[in-house]
Design a protein around this nucleic acid. Structure first.
Lengths: 337, 337
DNA sequence: TTGAAAGCGATACCAG
DNA sequence: CTGGTATCGCTTTCAA
């Protein structure tokens, strides 16, 4: 900046004004400074800028208050990243909302003070009221990203999560190739209001129908991400459908599924594909209860939220390619640890 | 730091000495400062530190000068990350060595000036001379990591890459589950001196023998990562082994394989598993020539090298979990873009 | 519309 | 052993 000031024959303050598009500079002066900038190949030192600015980013994660492993992993990552990001003047915090309670999320969002919160990542079912609340937050000047489950028609600035249709397709392809005999496939979902679950179903059905007509996708269980509920519903399902050769557990509540399978040694040949790599699903892979796990990396999710929220708050561009969350496939052999 | 100085009743300079474990402070003074630090819950601002230090990390990547897509991806990532890391006072550069020419790598390493190079990431075949050169570089005070292919008995500070034995096991498991009829599996390797290729073979054979005895791992082709060579060797292999049901391409040179398969429509049912997601392999997945691709993310590799090299150069700890490179599995459905 | 100067939090050099 | 002080690259008052 000193060099620019010298070359352009202006003061540091003016260079700063131009650099940050602050008002109060004559067009002609801007031109002179711009020229100097181009000529010198200047790259801005964000670290120094933040230091001087003493800016602190306050980012909030709104998560369902469920006692499930995936939310756990997210919270842990938020904690870990939070410590590291402290060096980067970024403060992460978490607000919990009763699961599937969109009213709670709405009032949470509406209670946000733009002076205290620069950005918010929302993990929520999709209802009109939430969409509107997001719009209001956005209009207050708070950056908003949707997390894991998108709310595409809201005013969110970005979506952070995997493409759930592709995830469902991936599960279907693996299912079709792993299963060795014709039969029925059981689909376990979480909630009709969770867009991520719906999309997985769409993708799954599509590929099954197309590529594996010898397999029939049977009655789907709505487990509300609740292990107990899942566990209690399964016996009846297996009674009604004796010929189940595969299970796609597309939501949470895996613990109920594993517990049920442990109790039914006759079911060990069933191909099971589930979501999210957690201690439980990792163990299930090792033990052969699960054949594959589809995962979205919690660390990436959190990091991506932070980057996107900061970029949006600062109104600066970001690298879209880097922010695409990958659909990880884990089988026993490539599972770390 | 000001607060600490005030509370401890010493100067800024002394606080700095204690914080950075610099010599020349009495034990008692250290204690006083430490107490103040604990009491105040101080967290160091690395950005400010780097700013003041004006430290620049000069990191070098030594890569084989092969015209293959994976090296390409690495170089591109080095370029991209390099630009971003410029803000972090980190300079990345690349040195190329003739492929499989360990002598070139050795002289490159020996020519390094610790004043100009803080760390180096080495992607090289494993020979005693390279090991020794690494030790010499290390002893000169240059941080060294091995990249993609480990040289475990050298003095490298870390290895950055996937666990290649597990990668081979992963390929085998997928192969065994995807293939529907007994027969032979062709193994294509790169070089006998490339440790990564060797390890993949080990893992692959192990799982095949154990879990899929109905499949026989047939003659392995040594393609030297050269598409032309691979292409020219395949016809003979298929003559000698009429019953090939699967191919594991564990090295580079995929272009030769794809070209060969395009010319042999009768081979479309063969299950093909290859390494590294590149434009070529991505297209092969889409077109159904490849059934799965095992990948190590080039971006992660480069970022990890940079972090590790900087941490080692500064002699500070790092987060091992974050530095573990994952074994990605791609099938048609979960391939991005 | 512009400039001068005082920091931000830390490091480094020179004196004492 | 310890302290003072200039400096890093940039932002932010306050004056002009």
């Amino acid at each position: 900046m000193n060099d620019i000031a010298r070359v352009a024959g202006v003061s540091l303050a003016t260079v700063d004004r131009v650099l940050n598009e602050r008002p109060g500079v004559r067009k002609i002066t801007i031109k002179r400074v711009q020229a100097a900038i181009d000529q010198l190949g200047y790259v801005r030192d964000t670290a120094a800028a933040n230091l001087a600015r003493r800016r602190v980013y306050n980012l909030l994660f709104v998560l369902p208050d469920t006692d499930n492993e995936f939310i756990h992993a997210l919270r842990q990552q938020i904690g870990e990243q939070g410590e590291k990001l402290a060096n980067d003047r970024t403060e992460l915090s978490v607000a919990l909302a009763a699961p599937f309670d969109t009213q709670g999320i709405v009032s949470l969002l509406d209670g946000l003070d733009p002076a205290k919160t620069d950005g918010v990542a929302v993990f929520s079912p999709e209802t009109p009221s939430v969409r509107d609340a997001i719009k209001r937050a956005h209009d207050k000047g708070i950056a908003v990203v949707t997390l894991v489950a998108d709310l595409p028609t809201s005013q969110r600035d970005h979506f952070v999560g995997i493409d759930n249709i592709s995830a469902g397709r991936t599960a279907a392809q693996l299912m079709g190739r792993f299963v060795r005999t014709p039969g029925k496939v059981l689909f376990i979902t979480g909630s009709r209001f969770a867009r991520d679950h719906l999309e997985r179903r769409l993708g799954f059905d599509d590929v099954m129908r197309q590529d594996f007509p010898e397999l029939e996708v049977a009655a789907s269980v709505e487990g509300r991400d609740d292990p107990e509920l899942v566990y209690s519903m399964l016996p009846e399902v297996f009674e009604n459908h004796p010929n189940i050769v595969g299970i796609y557990s597309s939501a949470a509540g895996n613990e109920g599924l594993v517990r049920f399978m442990r109790g039914q040694p006759g079911l060990r040949d069933i191909v099971v594909i589930a979501h999210e790599l957690t201690p439980l699903s990792r163990a299930a892979l090792k033990d052969g209860y699960f054949d594959a796990v589809i995962n979205q990396d919690a660390g990436h999710l959190v990091r991506s939220c932070a980057r996107l929220l900061r970029a949006t708050a600062d109104n600066v561009p970001f690298n879209a390619a880097q922010e695409r969350i990958r659909i990880d496939i884990y089988i026993k052999e490539n599972t770390p640890g």
